[in-house]
Design a protein around this nucleic acid. Structure first.
Ligand code: ZN
Ligand code: ZN
Ligand code: ZN
Ligand code: ZN
Lengths: 132, 132
DNA sequence: TACACAATGTTATATTATAACAATTAACAC
DNA sequence: GTGTTAATTGTTATAATATAACATTGTGTA
């Protein structure tokens, strides 16, 4: 079978919603918001999320247990992700910095482990929150 | 009051156990293992974990919801952490690489956000698992 | 002593995520 | 089209992770 090109019904419903809100959102919040579309159970959401993460349409913000749409066409299928997170307002942005991603992709640890994936989360205060 | 120098009873019990197992361990697994020491409830474990993370004695592996003792005396109180994670055997090592930490500490994102903390998780196969 | 704050103990509950199994749908080979 | 396989869905129940709320006790300091 060829690699799936179109999303399934539930996957599309979940993705549409995540793209619409345009900020990190939690699984059960997604569930509440797509129940009118016929998605009734957590598993239906989590299965869609798993697939969407796998194909790189969304990312999971691990420290927040939240999901956000990918804004970065050249982030290779979720294998190299970086985010900035404001600890005050919880605003999250995906970092797209070719120098950073190049540096991390080529990073070699001392144990000689070969990496195929990384996730980096920066924390601080966004500009808005710094002023306050 | 001066900054705490000695750990409290529960904090010490939890830290002792985490250091003994010497690999990432989950909160409820800690709970089961320290019940003989008098810790009975999840909150007692989570409160100790919170404090130990705060003072840098342990770190949370966000992608695994697990906690591991710090092996790295110069990781500044949990504000700059990096790990390698084997996706096959789940072995986790704390990366101590001064070049990497320097690079990340000085990283400036395009939005001009000032970071005070980061967490980086690399995924791949450890040497042992690569051979198989 | 009196105060402030950290830590504890305890019960209940909230939040996040998966197990298990049956049924349906989509893609492919022939 | 038929049979085959894999992906997706639907559904109920439950597991795993984490916090709320409140009363109490301990500890350092003035
Ligand atoms: Zn992305
Ligand atoms: Zn902010
Ligand atoms: Zn450390
Ligand atoms: Zn391994």
């Amino acid at each position: 079978m060829l690699k799936q090109e179109t999303l399934s019904k539930n996957q599309q419903i979940v993705l549409d919603f995540i793209e619409k809100v345009n900020e990190p959102i939690k699984a059960y919040s997604i569930l509440h918001n797509v129940q009118k579309k016929g998605i009734k159970a957590p598993l239906q959401v989590y299965r869609a999320l798993d697939k969407l993460v796998e194909i790189g349409k969304i990312h999971k913000i691990e420290s927040r247990n939240a999901f956000v749409a990918c804004k970065n066409s050249n982030c290779q299928i979720s294998k190299a992700t970086a985010f900035s997170i404001c600890e005050s307002c919880e605003e999250v942005s995906e970092i797209s910095d070719s120098k950073l991603s190049k540096y991390l992709k080529n990073f070699q640890d001392k144990a000689g482990m070969k990496f195929n994936k990384y996730n980096l989360e920066f924390f601080g205060l966004c500009k808005k929150c710094s002023i306050k």
